[in-house]
Design a protein around this nucleic acid. Sequence first.
DNA 1: GTACTTTTACTCGGATACCGTCTGTCCGAGTAATTATGG
DNA 2: CCATAATTACTCGGACAGACGGTATCCGAGTAAAAGTAC
Lengths: 160, 160
Amino acid sequence: MHIKSGFEQSVYALLLLDMLPEKAVLPGEAISEHLSNSPSYLQKLIRKLVHAGIVTSVTGVKGGFKLSKKSKDIRIYDVYVAIEGNQSMYSSNGVLSSLLRLDKDDCECLLEDIMLEAESNWINTLKQKTISTLAKDLQSGPFDSKVKPIEKWIQEKMVL
Amino acid sequence: MHIKSGFEQSVYALLLLDMLPEKAVLPGEAISEHLSNSPSYLQKLIRKLVHAGIVTSVTGVKGGFKLSKKSKDIRIYDVYVAIEGNQSMYSSNGVLSSLLRLDKDDCECLLEDIMLEAESNWINTLKQKTISTLAKDLQSGPFDSKVKPIEKWIQEKMVL
DNA sequence: GTACTTTTACTCGGATACCGTCTGTCCGAGTAATTATGG
DNA sequence: CCATAATTACTCGGACAGACGGTATCCGAGTAAAAGTAC
């Protein structure tokens, strides 16, 4: 089991967008340039964030993306769901039914209860962390000094 | 992200083995027959459980498998690790390094801390549940009556 | 200078290809109990 | 009846094929600002 790399890309794209001045917008091309990953794929990811209501898009010339909420209201969990979907990690294949010699899906999967409980604890952790949490961690961490250059770079690339 | 179906198969195979009388052994063929999944693949899974020290195998004629511990000492987490490996769900691709314009892996992934914390909570839940937990759930549930026939069937198929 | 058209720079979403992983199959080798064989 | 050989019924582990999903690319369509054009 592995969490998609698209999730990481999305989170850091949001962290970048969080440095945008209000009302400004950043083109997808610029974002992928700064994150050094493939432009077309990253944009596909960002579009998922748009659908999830996390990011606002502006079409046409001078278009681009920006956060549609305050970063403290964007939970890591929300990002996860936007990218990976809200289906649970575990889904039964009805093996217990076979074990009990019942018709398929005639009984609930005992294991599912346990797996859902575990997943619930996992989710709750991700609900308590936001993009803002990461931004603060960054500013209080050893790479504090690297933030300024990024903001400067944003000034050049942003529009509106 | 999705947990492999092999995990479910393994857990219920163990639940079946838990019904074996002491010292008795059940051939892999019989197990897959009762779980109605492919024999060769299930045996491959069971061999992973053997490597993990959860199941004991006996080779040769009258060979087969049995639990190598009490079912209350087989945590669901142990089964998970045996099948899926003990690498964590999340692994960074160094996107933060790109964001900060550093050489790859020159900084720790901020997101990783969060993801590991969440995963830790997930793991702890699975460490508190065992195969014995499931066995008890089964006996106290609505399909209690289905257990007897299985034990009878085991009497026919087991060896030693 | 105003109304209209064209260009331009973006997003949007689908079609498609690639590639790694999980599922599942197959086979030869190893192992040990059982059976057969020979004296 | 005993010792040895052959058979049998298993596990073991690797090689391999197929399916599926994540990653990534490409392209035509839509959109709106900007630039160009005509009167």
